[in-house]
Amino acid sequence: MAHLTNIRKSGSGDGARNRSLPAIRLFFKVMIEFGRIELNPAIEVPKSKVEKNRVPVYIEQSNLGDLLQLVNSKYRTRDVTILALMSYCGLRVGEIHRLNLTDFNEQARQLAVLGKGRKWRYIPLPPTLIELLKQYLTERLQPRRSQESAFFISRLGRRISKRAIQDVAEKTFDSFKQTNLQYKDVTLSSHKLRHSFATNLFATGKVDLRTLQELLGHADISTTQIYTHVNDHAKKEAMMTIQPILPRNLHQYQ
């Protein structure tokens, strides 16, 4: 079905596709009950197989600076700030969209984020990001309505849309892949920046799983555990560099 195909093309995983499928089936079921259609076309659509414990796609810490440097748009400071909050704070597209002026507390040096399930989390901000947010606010576009509280404003003077946020990421990814060929065949999306934040942070070895869960706003720590497998992958790669030198003719000592 077209909608499920678009979910995959947008860079979302098979899990997101599988979560949409029951809602689509229910929609067509209701349509049948109202006599609008006779058959449910979604009944035979299978769920995608989700690979468990799959290492998430991410951008290495050393390459994130290259990505932000390549932002090239009329509203560059705004767009750099958007990508930086996803890359270095783990914000989702919807969280960027919902962000309000009052959510940035410069005095407390933190950002209040309204996440999934209407739950708030509070992210401490490093000095570099505080300065970036302050710089953006000096260039923030004039909203059409004086009472508009959105942190990020579109060129039309309204709260920036989720689609516009994704466009910022996608255009930057196109440029990034041209200069960073190791990512040429990697599927990158705005959500992969959230993966990059979590993966790079956990890989430092200075952050425990519980803290990472709080920063990401995961309701269940099992969701956060996917990032532990990055360390497993790194350990495997490290061990493969070892070339043991063993004694010859071991059988003569037996």
Rank of each mutant, 00 (worst) to 15 (best):
A2V: 08
T5L: 14
K9Y: 11
G11N: 07
G11L: 11
N18F: 09
A23D: 07
A23K: 09
A23V: 14
A23S: 12
R25M: 10
K29T: 09
I32R: 06
E33K: 13
R36L: 15
L39G: 00
N40G: 04
S48N: 15
S48I: 04
K49A: 12
V50G: 05
N53G: 09
N53C: 08
Q61F: 12
L64F: 09
G65K: 15
D66W: 10
D66A: 15
L67Q: 02
L68N: 01
L68S: 06
L70G: 01
L70F: 07
V71E: 07
K74T: 15
K74S: 13
T77H: 05
T77D: 11
R78N: 07
I82E: 05
L83I: 07
L85R: 02
M86P: 03
G90S: 10
L91G: 03
G94H: 03
G94P: 00
E95N: 01
E95K: 02
H97G: 04
H97I: 04
R98C: 05
L99K: 01
L101Y: 03
T102W: 00
E106K: 11
R109V: 10
Q110W: 05
L111W: 03
V113H: 00
G115K: 06
G115H: 01
G117Y: 02
G117K: 02
R118S: 12
W120I: 11
P126W: 09
T128M: 14
I130V: 15
E131N: 14
L132C: 06
Q135F: 07
Q135H: 11
Q142D: 12
P143H: 06
P143K: 00
R145V: 13
Q147L: 15
F151W: 03
I153P: 04
S154N: 04
S154E: 09
G157W: 10
G157N: 10
R158Q: 15
R159V: 10
I160L: 01
S161G: 06
S161Y: 03
K162F: 00
K162P: 05
R163E: 11
A164F: 09
V168D: 03
F176G: 01
T179I: 14
L181M: 12
K184S: 15
V186W: 03
L188A: 09
S189N: 02
H195T: 10
T199Y: 06
L201W: 00
F202D: 01
F202C: 02
G205P: 09
G205F: 12
V207D: 05
L209N: 06
R210Y: 14
R210K: 15
L212C: 06
E214K: 03
L215S: 01
L215M: 08
H218F: 00
A219K: 00
D220E: 13
D220R: 09
T223H: 03
T224A: 07
T228H: 05
T228A: 11
N231A: 11
N231K: 13
H233A: 14
Q243W: 08
P244T: 08
I245W: 02
L246I: 13
R248I: 12
N249Q: 14
Q254L: 15
